[in-house]
Amino acid sequence: MARKPAAMDDAAQRNSPNDDIGEALRLKLYRMQVELREAEQRAFDLFLQNLVKGTSHLSLGQEAIAAGFGVAMKPGDLSFCTYRGHAHTLARGVPVEKVLGELMQRDNGLMRGKGGSMHLTSVEHGVMGSYAIIGAHLPIACGAAWRAQYKGDKDVSVCFFGDGTTNIGAFHEALNFAVVWKLPVVFVCENNLYMEYTPIGDVTAVEHPAADRASAYGLPRIVIDGNDADEVYRAAMKAFEIARAGNGPSLIECMTYRHSGHSRADPAKYRPEGELEKWKERDPIKIYRERLKQFGVGDDVIEKINAEVMQVVNDATEACKAAPMPSLDILTTDVYADGGWAWRN
């Protein structure tokens, strides 16, 4: 198992009165994390009712990363997510209903059921896709960053991936490429300690699968507490500043833990006893609620946010249940740019 970063135990730092983030942003970060948690928890519940079909990969317990980056990103910045991408999609402001609708394969889903859980995309929100082939989207994010560089735009491409991705070739090709071309791209490794069912440490030559490879590409070694949304937010802002200034890519390894299995088929029995419980003590939402209290936010404010989020998720659920299935005529639409699928005359 990977070592905990020093900052994780640094209560003094967390309790620092120095509030560089501010209350408005903190409440936003909290609300976002709660929304990601409740929406995904709802997705899980809907599985059990057989209303969500196919597969699904939850990031329960990892919300601080998607929330921290999502809140730090500006309109125009682009997100590239993985098949575990519900949270990162929601974190760009995509309505819960559009995501749950896609998971429930309804006509109101983001892609009207043509993509499914693993391919959530909302171009209008800057979510340029969720990619289900490990590592594929790292070079794609480089290409989007190349466009920004070529056009002189200041937007940043942010590419989220898991620890398992660091052992596939595309990871290494993309890092080298991004550094050589000095691209405005931020690579975010969510190290949840497991590549699917296997501990990442069992199959990786270095302790920190992303950060320990950074020096091979001339990048600084950055490991942060991925369960602390403030830390994530700060790391994101720093990386964005570098990218927007034309100083190239960053690679950030966020230490975290997923509360559920790899996918809905996985009960996660491979985890040592007590590990999950230990990490649940460091639940990002629990940490953040304490943080809010330290900064003087009252329980009533916190409960109000919780209730509002729950209302959003409940409303979305009902809307999706009432939504029709996709119309059958979309089976053959949008294969080609003419809107159809014709390959011959």
């Binding site: 896709g129 070079p139 794609i140 480089c142 466009r147 070529y150 595309a170 090709e173 080298n176 490429f177």
Partner: peptide, 19 residues
Amino acid sequence: PISEQAILGAAMGAAMTGL
């Protein structure tokens, strides 16, 4: 570089964002 995945991935990312 000799990185065929990076070449095609970068081409795709550039294409989907306007180039």
